[in-house]
Simulated assay, not measured.
Amino acid sequence: MEYPTKDKLALAEHPVTPAPGSSEASAAQPGEEEYCCSCCSYRTGSITVAILYLVGALSFLGVVIGILCSADVRDIGAVIFVLLGVLTVSIIFISLMFYGVVKRRPHFLLPWAIWEGFNIGVGVAGLVVSLFTVGVTALAGLVILSIRCYCLFVVQVYRGQLIAQLSKSEVNAQA
C-alpha cells in the first residue's frame, strides 16, 4: 500500500503547470479560454494578428522590391529605401511575435508591441495632419488605426495572460 508523502500532498494542493516548451503545454491552458476576442481565445487572436501582419508586410515588401527592380536607380528616392528598412524591421518583429505566441514566450511579444505602439503614434500624427490637408476622406485612416489599436490590445492581453501563467508556475515551483 502506498502512503501519500509530503511532496505528493503539496503537489495535489498546488499543481504545477507544464513548462511552456513541453508537449503538455501545447494543449490549451485552463485559464486561457475564459476570455475571448471575437469568439476565440486571445492566443488564437494573437496568432491571427501575427499571420495577417506577416502576410501584409511580406506583400508590401514584394511591391517595394518590384518598384526597386522596375525603376531606374536614378529615379528611386530615399523614401523607397526607408520603406525597405522599415519593412525589414517590421518583418523581424512580427516573426518574433509569431514565435512568442506559438511557443508561449511573453518576452518575444514585447518588441512587436513597442514597435506597433510607435507605428500607431506615427499613424495618429499622420491622421491629424491629413485631416487638415485632405479633409474628411482621411477618416478612412481612422478605421485602419482603430483596427491596429485593437490588434495591439489583443496581443497585450495575451501577453499579460502568459506572464500571469508564468508567475503561477514559479510560485508552484517554490511551494
Rank of each mutant, 00 (worst) to 15 (best):
P4I: 04
R74N: 12
I91L: 12
G85A: 11
S38A: 13
A138T: 04
E2N: 13
Y3F: 12
A138V: 00
L87D: 09
L131K: 06
S22V: 02
F153Q: 00
T5Y: 08
S26Y: 05
L83A: 14
V63T: 10
Y3S: 12
A164Q: 15
P20W: 04
Q156Y: 08
I120W: 01
C40W: 05
R74G: 09
A175W: 11
V155Q: 00
C36G: 13
V157L: 08
N119T: 07
R43T: 09
V64C: 06
P111Q: 02
S70R: 11
G45Q: 05
V73F: 09
G66M: 07
P4G: 10
I76V: 15
S90N: 08
V157P: 00
V129L: 10
Q156I: 06
G160Y: 04
V73E: 05
N119C: 07
G85E: 04
T17S: 06
S41Q: 11
A12F: 12
I147H: 01
E33S: 13
N119P: 00
V122K: 00
N119F: 01
Q161A: 09
L68A: 02
C40E: 15
V89W: 05
Q165P: 04
F81L: 15
L145A: 02
S26F: 05
S169I: 10
I92C: 02
G62C: 10
S41K: 09
T48W: 05
G62Y: 08
A10F: 11
P106T: 13
R105I: 08
I91T: 01
V82A: 15
Y42T: 02
Y158S: 06
I92A: 02
G123H: 02
C39K: 14
V124L: 02
A138M: 03
T44Y: 09
G77N: 14
S90T: 03
L87P: 07
F60G: 03
A25M: 05
T88Y: 07
Y42A: 11
L11V: 07
V49Q: 05
R43N: 10
C36K: 15
V16I: 13
V134Q: 06
H14F: 14
A138R: 04
A10P: 04
G126I: 03
V154S: 00
K6D: 14
A71R: 13
K168L: 09
A57S: 14
L152A: 11
V136F: 13
P111W: 00
A138E: 02
G160H: 03
G135P: 02
P30G: 02
